[in-house]
Simulated assay, not measured.
Amino acid sequence: MIKKILVTGGAGFIGSHTCVELLNQGYELVVVDNLQHSSFKSLEVIQSLTSRSICFYQIDIRDQDQLEAIFEHEHIDAVIHFAGLKVVSESIYAPLEYYENNVSGTITLLEVMKKFACKNIIFSSSASVYGDLAAVPILESAPRSTTVPYARTKLIIEDLLIDLARSDAKWNIVILRYFNPIGAHPSGDLGEDPKGLPTNLLPYVTQVASGQLKEVQVFGADYKTKDGTGVRDYIHVVDLARGHVAAIQKLAKGSRLSIYNLGTGKGSSVLDIITEMEAVVGHPIAYQLVERRAGDIAVSYADVSKAKAELHWQANFDLRRMCEDSWRWQCRHPLGFEE
């Protein structure tokens, strides 16, 4: 039975929304986060939204001694592993930092879990492991390839977990391959809080819409898509968070090794996102078409039939709702948590 869950990176965008959904389902949570790219304020908001408490440790998962002390004290039943660096473009210029943080950190975490006989883990992977080779909609069985170091760290960790499952049948492992999470909690008090200039599309669009930034740079207008801009499978972060609740229930039954796409199964272009956000905010949003960005691909969207059949989960929020919730967060917290 799974009662107490360790959430690494639980103060981040996806981690914080997942904490809300887990607490609402009655789980006890222990969050570890080094707060390098997140804010303690998000944990306060989580507790306010759920009227539940969280046990928090500000540590880096690469610190094995501190991690062992937490496992010794907290008696963890399962781990959801979000912690890691995640900026695709940054990883191209800082590959050593990404390998050391993401891969080495995961190895340390797994070693501690093994020591304390905690062998239930959900890993936060990415659709970027499919590279540019998979036919759409992308099945979990599609060949994997990588175009950037960030994605390669995810692929390496996936392989590590696959080998671990083969070596010891007591491990229960769920790998969740996210497509493109956007949106925010419907309260408007929990959302994506980029430090400095946003690197993801939606925070950039909302900051242009609010007048904080001049215009959206649209990277690439010559892809073989309906309007020339890149197409992605955008999923509401609350839907994504609820996918983790379904995955925990899978772990509790004994998942062995299971891999799932989490997306909507629909592709939307960059210009679709801008047009939808214009409808939400009620005025045009300035954008400029610029050259393609290194590591980007033309089209990526999921086949989500496996998650629907085995996890009994599917995304419920449409693109309009994703934009509405993103805009509500932007309006209520124009400077994020650090205002």
Rank of each mutant, 00 (worst) to 15 (best):
L161S: 02
L109P: 03
A184Q: 03
S128V: 15
S187K: 06
Y150K: 03
P137G: 14
L176E: 10
V129Y: 05
Y130V: 05
N180T: 02
V136L: 09
I156C: 01
V148G: 04
P95I: 01
I107K: 08
A127I: 00
F116P: 10
I138V: 15
E97L: 15
I122G: 03
P143L: 06
P143H: 07
D168G: 01
G183I: 00
F123P: 02
L176T: 08
Y98S: 03
P143I: 09
A134S: 15
A94F: 07
Y130L: 06
S141K: 02
I138H: 12
L190M: 13
Y130S: 10
P149C: 04
L109W: 00
A127F: 01
S124Y: 05
G131M: 02
E100L: 09
K119C: 04
T146L: 03
Y150T: 05
E97C: 13
V103P: 02
S125K: 07
W171G: 12
K154W: 08
A117T: 14
I173G: 03
I173Y: 03
L160T: 08
R152C: 14
V136D: 15
A117G: 10
A184L: 07
F179D: 01
Y178T: 06
K195T: 01
K154F: 08
N101F: 00
I138Y: 12
L164R: 09
N102L: 12
